[in-house]
Design a protein around this nucleic acid. Structure first.
Length: 420
DNA sequence: TCTGGGGTCCTAGGACCC
DNA sequence: TCTGGGGTCCTAGGACCC
């Protein structure tokens, strides 16, 4: 046993739960194991069907033939998750339900149950922080973990600790996950995908050329469809292709910040820390209607939905203890174009009526000729409610007492202004 | 076969202040 | 009277992620 320990090398893990929502559903409905199942934007119809529990039984006793099938589903919505058997039919997340029904009509469809997923999310994250306290939340089914100073975090490059975490999560929840351990978040994120499901991948700095450079640019967290398309136009397909471009060339073609970032990424460099706590920037609620609605013809219906959204945002803010002063709306038209408007008021609020009033002003500034498919309400520029002064502004050094903000009447459609 | 809901961050122009 | 620059806030849109 050597008494002198070497300086630990930076080891960052990315953990991704395997088919999270679908796996949680399979715990409730084990009779669906091995079958193609999708979780989707299903509505009441699907909800009712799966609650048909036999007398004296549990959810596991619901007979297979009573589960709703994709082919019987009518309406809007997308797939949130699909089980592995369903994926074999080409079904994937974010796919429209109608398209998925064509690919696999006999797939079983289940409604999304966020409350249940959140319960499991809390449980697996608690398991992790008991073992490795420096954890960054990246949503219900994903986290980053800093292994560097954790006991066992250096052994086999982090593989030993990763195995322990996998095992502990499985014992506590019955769920599997995949883990990538690497010198930083960027590589760890890519590595967690290498061995799915229930896999572990350990990557070292020296593996950059052999393991990372062959991957398509799209695998980089932050390079989406648009950036990828532009890269492809310049014959840059893999991360290796990207690495071979001059930094200055990237800056000239993608802008100062993005170009420099791409260069760093291609060479596997990323110093971002694992952040354990962060404050929310905004809270919002939005809804896609069952059918397109028109500002004039469906005025009453829209007005009711609008008020409801404001109330929900207000509830969210109050429950979580925040107030905000930038209030905005979002519309999606039938052609899928999006319009947003917002207004910053001179005091912070979490009051449904106040939000509704300002959001109503915003609505007057946006064109309302086209049918709408979505309406949303957002509150930003948030602050903890407890730090609020008595007059509704920030007590000291705040930004609340700035210039008077713009009222209504600028731009937009004056013709439909009185609707809301 | 039309494509959810909840977020973050960036950009870019204009207003306004120093 | 003209010219200039830095810094911050506000607003709209868009890319991207889970």
């Amino acid at each position: 046993m050597a008494a002198v320990t070497a300086t630990p090398i930076r080891r960052i893990a990315h953990l991704d739960m395997d088919a999270f929502y679908a796996s949680v559903e399979l715990l409730r409905y084990p009779q669906l194991k091995g079958l193609p199942v999708v979780i989707g934007g299903a509505r009441r119809k699907v909800d009712e069907a799966v609650r048909d529990v036999p007398e004296g039984g549990t959810l596991a006793d619901i007979p297979l033939h009573t589960f709703p099938l994709l082919k019987d589903y009518v309406g809007r919505g997308v797939i949130t998750t699909a089980t592995y058997p369903a994926r074999q039919f080409g079904i994937g997340s974010a796919m429209g339900l109608m398209k998925a029904a064509k690919l696999c009509p006999q797939a079983i469809i289940l409604p999304v149950d966020f409350d249940e997923y959140r319960r499991y999310s809390r449980r697996f994250k608690q398991v992790i922080t008991e073992i490795a306290p420096v954890m960054e939340d990246r949503g219900v089914d994903e986290v980053y973990i800093d292994f560097t100073d954790v006991a066992g975090g250096q052994r086999e490059g982090g593989r030993v600790l990763a195995r322990l975490i996998q095992k502990s999560i499985f014992e506590a929840t019955g769920l599997t996950c995949s883990i990538g351990v690497a010198p930083n978040k960027l590589i760890a994120k890519m590595a967690s995908e290498f061995n799915k499901p229930n896999g572990i991948s350990v990557i070292f700095e020296d593996d950059l050329q052999s393991r990372i450079w062959p991957l398509p640019c799209r695998k980089v967290n932050g390079i989406g469809p648009k950036a990828d398309e532009k890269l492809q136009r310049h014959e840059i397909r893999t991360i290796g292709d990207l690495a071979l471009r001059e930094r200055d060339w990237l800056i000239a073609n993608f802008g100062k910040a993005t170009g420099a970032w791409m260069h760093e990424v291609a060479w596997g460099r990323d110093e971002r820390p694992v952040v354990t706590e962060s404050e929310p920037v905004s809270m919002s609620r939005e809804t896609t209607f069952d059918r397109d609605l028109h500002a004039v013809r469906h005025r009453a219906e829209l007005g009711a939905i609008f008020t409801r959204l404001c109330e929900k945002v207000a509830e969210d803010l109050q429950r979580k203890g925040y107030v905000g002063k930038t209030i905005g709306i979002k519309l999606r038209y039938d052609d899928f174009k999006i319009a947003t408007r917002d207004q910053t008021i001179d005091h912070f609020t979490a009051d449904a009526k106040a939000i509704r009033r300002v959001a109503g002003q915003c609505l007057k500034r946006v064109p309302l000729e086209r049918p709408l498919r979505l309406l949303g309400v957002r509150v930003g520029a948030l602050m903890k409610a407890g730090e609020l002064g008595a007059d509704g502004t920030k007590p000291a050094g705040g930004t609340g007492a700035g210039r008077p903000s713009q009222g209504d009447g600028r731009g937009g459609s004056a013709r439909t202004a009185s609707l809301f």
